[in-house]
Nucleic acid binder design. Structure first.
Lengths: 240, 240
DNA sequence: CGTAACTTTGATTAGTATCAAAAATGGTGG
DNA sequence: CCACCATTTTTGATACTAATCAAAGTTACG
């Protein structure tokens, strides 16, 4: 199977693609590279000459303050673009790190731009993709700025679980959890120690249970309620 | 002078527009409406059938948790689009509020979409505009998630001052400050009381001075340093 | 099997929120 | 133009959430 199939199908969910669109996507030139968990895929300041598609695994966009504090800006799952924002920018403003072992297909910017220019439906799908990322970013800002520690933790669990569910990479109530508690903290503006305590609270309340690299949601309605979660911001129009 | 001139010129700074592009922008159908400070321009859940351009004044995008806490997601100045993210979305995910007395030109979505479709240079400029907004959003997340109260306050002062400077709406070291301390707090994830204390600190250190609706930057290098501010994320390529 | 990374728990501290109230400011109508 | 009222700013006292520091368990990995 074509390695970009998952990516192409994801875009097809965003706009109506015809045969020629799909063909254009599936025949994009690319070079696939494998990354170990914890390694950098791209770095802030890098010249951006290609656009990455995450073929498998999880990745995170991060940014660091001058004093060394790291914020996770977004988490990406299989089939998602990890740095589309660089398409019109010379230098990347972010780091992208592999959270788990991950494979990335790098598509030359030029090829991507040509496809965008020539195929309006793909252009539309990518535009929606950017808007959806921006919408998630806004919800994260609300999360970090206004919610309590417990709410933030519950909220991110809701989001990632639902996104995996919708992407079809995970069924049941057991969801892959791609982050260490340190990274979870960096995504929510909390310390790893406090993440640990909040997870314990959710566990003690029977809302979730945790395992090595997964979280089981035992009481989705209550988790959603604790998290103040409503999925509209994910902009998954076709599926909600 | 054409009321959309400031807007059109701003886009011309983002990409090379030819005569026909400018004409297309300047002849966009629109209806201008005036809003008093503190009133809502659009609301979360509203059907989005037009796109707003801020002709003068300041506006803020906001989002509220289910428990009623409000986060300011972005602040917009003269000439900026206030809800371009709605162009491909049916229902708005945000509120837009007038921070000061403000005038907004509402452009029907259809007209905007046609222009985007037919004028590649405008499409490019708008795409960059969205990416710049997203980049600012990322920096805000870093700000709220990882910086101390004093840094956050200083950072937002740097950003808004510089943006006004670049837009040419404010020269000198005295910058219009469009927010109450309450709103400032909602933008930084702090309480109004704490904003007040941080401003006092900056004042006592001789870095800024404050007046009714303005802030004077007395020591820009030190403010920048306290804020951990570097302007790259604003994506003002043509000017930096 | 040994070691580094990660999780868990406890004790203490620090930063910011909350509560309260006074002072200053701005807008409005008379 | 002044007086009044609502909003905003300022300051003080106290409470609480989450950070920090520290160390013991646990897990993953080479």
């Amino acid at each position: 199977m074509n390695s970009l199939a998952i990516f192409a199908n994801r875009l097809a969910d965003r706009s109506s693609l015809v045969q020629a669109d799909m063909l254009g996507l599936l025949t994009l030139p690319r070079r696939s590279t494998h990354f170990a968990a914890g390694t950098h895929i791209t770095r802030q300041g890098d010249l951006a000459h290609s656009i990455g598609v995450l073929l498998n695994g999880f990745a995170a966009k991060t940014k660091t303050t001058g004093r060394g504090a790291r914020q996770v800006l977004s988490v990406h799952i299989q089939g998602e673009l990890i740095d589309l924002q660089n398409i019109l920018v010379e230098k990347s403003e972010y780091n992208v790190e592999a959270l788990t072992s991950a494979t990335v297909a790098f598509i030359p910017k030029r090829a991507m731009l040509d496809l965008i220019e020539n195929r309006p439906a793909i252009r539309l799908a990518l535009w929606i993709d950017i808007l959806a990322d921006a919408s998630i970013s806004g919800e994260w800002l609300l999360n970090v700025g206004q919610r309590t520690a417990l709410e933030r933790v519950a909220h991110l669990i809701c989001e990632l679980s639902l996104r995996q569910e919708v992407a079809g990479t995970c069924k049941g109530p057991v969801y892959e959890w791609p982050m260490t508690q340190e990274q979870f903290g960096d995504a929510t503006g909390l310390t790893a120690v406090h993440i640990n305590r909040m997870l314990k609270t959710l566990r003690d309340d029977g809302i979730i249970s945790t395992a090595k690299r997964s979280i089981t949601i035992r009481d989705w309605p209550r988790l959603k309620q604790v998290a103040d979660f409503s999925q509209g911001y994910l902009l998954q129009q076709r599926l909600s």
